[in-house]
Design a protein around this nucleic acid. Structure first.
Lengths: 156, 156
DNA sequence: TGTGAAATTCCGCAAAG
DNA sequence: CTTTGCGGAATTTCACA
């Protein structure tokens, strides 16, 4: 049995439910029910509980960017002028759909982003035209992901 | 109308379907059907096509790590000794559940990882005990995400 | 409080046009 | 793409431990 900081109790059955749905959000509840040996209604109620606890943050269809021609992933450390408000820069980054993550980070960069591009040329265009054009961006450092080996959620 | 490199045609209806399901994988097909004005069976046929194209890479329940007490996200650049095989290091990283992403990257690091920890103390433990213990890891550079502002998929 | 079983409503899916 | 129809699933209700 496991207790989180907020007092959510997650037993072995909850874990099995979560693991099945984290793998495939469309797994039928009744199928899970058969696998864990309790009724569908029980699963349903446990899911309600887990949702209410905030642990379940929704479900998403995952699309493969490569099929859309997005073959390059990169991480970019962004240096901002001291004078510029970071939220304003984030607001501008929000308008660039290729920016799929954005963090305020400790260390030498003000902002750290993850970005998807079709190829290196497209990446260069994004950096030189979209990112550098944002007010306050003084410099960027780019790291291209040659291959992603791990991509998962935290273990339950 | 949009054509990807692999010849997948995605029209406006496909986009609406994808956007609905990327937001919530459990959206009933018939609800989408009502919104876009075609029959449920048609949606179903389009989903089959999209799945066959490889664009749909599955669906996942998203869990909120904070509820499990994982409050700190960090990025870690890992330096590996030249002599060590990177795949072996990745294999070891795979065994650390807090490592949720792992990339081979260009630039000064051999490997770049995203990691979740409960707090700074836990992060330190992960770095000093789990990561540094891996054969071939010579040094790490850590950037803590103070706040994540953007987290999304590529736009369809 | 949490569980199981039945009933109802709704959905997913395949076939045929 | 639509309609149709079957099989099965989701969800509610209720009785019980």
């Amino acid at each position: 049995m496991k207790v989180s900081d907020k007092g959510i109790y997650i037993d072995g059955i909850d874990k099995k439910i979560l693991r099945a749905l984290m793998e495939d959000a469309r797994t039928p509840i009744l199928e899970i029910a058969r696998n864990v040996g309790i009724s569908g209604a029980a699963i349903h109620q446990r899911l309600k509980k887990l949702e209410k606890s905030g642990l379940l943050a929704g479900s998403k269809f995952i699309i493969n960017p490569k099929v859309l021609g997005y073959n390059t992933m990169a991480f970019v450390g962004v240096y901002l002028d001291k004078a510029v408000s970071n939220p304003e820069a984030v607001k501008q980054l929000q308008r660039v759909p290729e920016v799929i993550e954005c963090h305020y980070t400790t260390g030498e960069w003000s902002i750290f982003i993850k970005i998807l591009s079709k190829d290196n040329e497209h990446l260069m265009h994004l950096l030189n035209t979209e990112i550098q054009a944002i007010k306050g961006v003084s410099r960027t450092e780019t790291f291209i992901s040659l291959q992603q080996q791990i991509n998962r959620q935290i273990k339950v």
